[in-house]
Simulated scan of single mutants.
Amino acid sequence: MKLLFVLFISLFLNSNLFASNLSQKKIIKLKPSEDNFELIDLGQNVINSNLDDQKAVFDSSSLIEKKPILVKDKDKDFAIVLSFRKNFGYLSDGVSVDAKEFSTLFSKRLINDLKLNFANSIANNLYQNSKILSRFSPKDAKMINVSPFLMHEKNKIYTKSIDYLIVINLDDFYVITTNYFITLTKDAVAKINFKIISLDNGKILKAKNVKLNFALDVKNLSKNYQNVIDEMPKMLSEVIDKEVKTLMH
């Protein structure tokens, strides 16, 4: 009898201890995290591409001798360099004009349309060289001689300091024909890049890629080439003039 009582007490104590042991346990259910994993870029090895933070890209002081006659005035004066690539030619409606001829005529109209104070041809020639071309234009670009389109002054470089150099690259020109079953459309597309460089500090102030679209006449094809030459340089001049105005404020 005593033996049974001892066994009973023993079982009772063990069961209490077991229950007490379980009461201290916690069942943890692991769930996948619902938080987003975000990489934070500290920017420690990033090259700053902001035009405002760039170093001088070239030194224009070596191009023009510093002379007392070079004075500043309120007007902002520009030198201009134009280049073209082999794709900037006209081929449509039986009319074929090679890139050099088309680009030269396009440039002449553009200079006439731009509302800028350009340096005379002699002063502008200081910037029409292979060094400027290789620095600001595509590797396969060729120079356009714009001197005939600028003012001529014999034996006179320039009596005022030139403030800006504008470099315009005529990159690509093509015509898209779209057939909508009942209608036909033709659009001329010109892709152009231009940069405006300060001649005071050698920095690029503006760098833009421009895509011009011009609707061609599908009924009177003979006028399309002339319309392109008349209108597309004017379209580009409006874009450039607008960017120049932002520099004046």
Rank of each mutant, 00 (worst) to 15 (best):
M1Q: 15
L7N: 06
F8C: 09
L22I: 08
S23P: 05
K25I: 15
I27V: 15
D35T: 14
N36G: 09
Q44W: 06
N45S: 07
I47V: 13
S49C: 08
S49W: 11
S49L: 12
D52P: 04
A56L: 06
F58C: 13
S60T: 04
I64Y: 01
I69Q: 12
L70S: 08
D73P: 00
K76R: 10
V81R: 00
V81D: 02
G89R: 10
G94C: 02
V97R: 07
D98G: 12
A99D: 06
S103L: 02
S103C: 01
K115Y: 04
K115I: 06
N129M: 08
K131C: 06
R135S: 09
K139V: 13
K139P: 04
D140I: 09
K142N: 12
E153I: 12
E153N: 15
K156M: 07
Y158Q: 10
Y158P: 01
T159W: 02
K160F: 11
S161H: 10
D163Y: 05
Y164A: 10
V167D: 07
N169T: 02
D172K: 03
V175T: 11
N179L: 13
F181L: 11
T183I: 04
K186C: 03
A188N: 04
V189Y: 01
V189I: 12
I192A: 02
N193E: 14
F194V: 07
I196N: 01
S198I: 01
D200W: 02
I204A: 09
A207D: 15
N209W: 09
V210C: 03
A215V: 08
V218F: 07
K219I: 13
K219F: 14
S222P: 02
N224G: 00
N227H: 07
E231L: 11
K234P: 05
M235C: 03
S237C: 10
S237K: 11
V239K: 13
K242V: 11
K242C: 10
V244C: 02
M248A: 14
